[in-house]
């Protein structure tokens, strides 16, 4: 039988981290869900990134052990528009990805999601992506890390971006490059959740608009999928999510016998403590749905 595992990305706790939550508080929350995985953002959650102190690295491993958690996915960035006068070169991008792969490995992670700068409204990644990843495939193999770019709205699954990634997997034959699916692409109703920093127009384009990717498209790419970010915005008191079709997603994952992590990514309103309450609701909902699918 396939094995679904549950985790939480610290992205969920944006705004709460460092203001009402320490790293240890966050780990205690995740462990209390009965979840086993923690996902982080390298540039967000590692003090003194990219050079954490040895003391902090020890602290991190100590907390994983104390709360019985495993390090799952590490979010990294390849900021192609790092400076105003020129784009990042392949060499610079390769150095960045290598640095994050090594740091992720030091911290015990098994996958790294590089978020690559885009060159179009439909999120075509900057063309350096392919050479940057290819130069790092041997390193990823040596470290036992899967590099997995994120399939994120407004890019659906049936799209040239995803076709390129799958062609890369097939051309290289590498086991260390796979897809990461963000469940926001399955969104079926508009959300009113506000994303700080973005204009109404940008939010309309990227987040509020339901993309409604069909489950048959997910079935097609599950063999290439290493990790799922369980993106959501709001779950009500009856454990109903108006936006993301969890029932269909769970049915698809169980029927397709996919194994791997569902890692919570709460992206709703950023009121203090709301993320903590919402993530608990999502875990209650997902466990119930998995139980129903498997007849537990």
């Amino acid at each position: 039988m396939s094995n679904l595992k549950y985790g939480v990305s610290l992205y969920s706790y944006t705004g709460d981290m460092n203001t009402v939550l320490t790293l240890e508080d966050a780990m205690a929350e995740i462990a209390d869900l009965g979840a086993t995985g923690i996902e982080i953002l390298g540039e967000g959650n590692i003090p003194n990134y990219p050079e954490p102190t040895t003391a902090w690295i020890d602290h991190w491993h100590g907390l994983l052990s104390k709360y019985g958690l495993e390090a799952t996915n590490y979010g990294s960035w390849i900021d192609s528009r790092m400076w105003r006068n020129r784009d990042l070169t392949v060499e610079e991008g390769s150095v960045m990805l290598a640095r994050d792969l090594r740091l992720a490995s030091t911290l015990g992670f098994t996958s790294v999601r590089p978020k690559i700068g885009v060159v179009s409204m439909d999120l075509q990644p900057h063309p350096i992506w392919e050479a940057v990843v290819e130069r790092n495939l041997d390193l990823a193999t040596d470290l036992g890390i899967i590099i997995c770019p994120e399939i994120h709205g407004p890019t659906p699954i049936k799209h040239p971006v995803v076709d390129e990634y799958i062609a890369f997997i097939e051309r290289t034959g590498s086991d260390n490059f796979r897809l990461l699916i963000d469940t926001g692409i399955f969104q079926r109703a508009a959300t009113t959740a506000h994303q700080d920093g973005l204009s109404d127009e940008a939010q309309e384009e990227g987040w509020r608009k339901p993309l409604g990717v069909p489950m048959s498209d997910l079935v097609d790419v599950l063999p290439y999928t290493a990790f799922i970010q369980a993106k959501f915005f709001d779950i009500d008191d009856q454990l109903v999510d108006q936006h993301i079709p969890w029932d269909d997603i769970m049915k698809t994952l169980v029927t397709s016998e996919w194994s791997g992590y569902l890692s919570s990514e709460y992206e709703g309103d950023r009121l203090p403590y709301r993320s903590l309450e919402q993530v608990r609701r999502q875990h209650a909902l997902l466990r119930r749905l998995e139980g129903q699918q498997r007849g537990w």
Binding site: I116, G117, V118, S120, H126, G197, L198, A202
Partner: peptide, 13 residues
């Protein structure tokens, strides 16, 4: 944020 289309940048907080 280079991962957001340049048309929607910069992000203003």
């Amino acid at each position: 944020a280079p991962y957001i289309p340049v048309e929607f940048q910069p992000s203003i907080f």
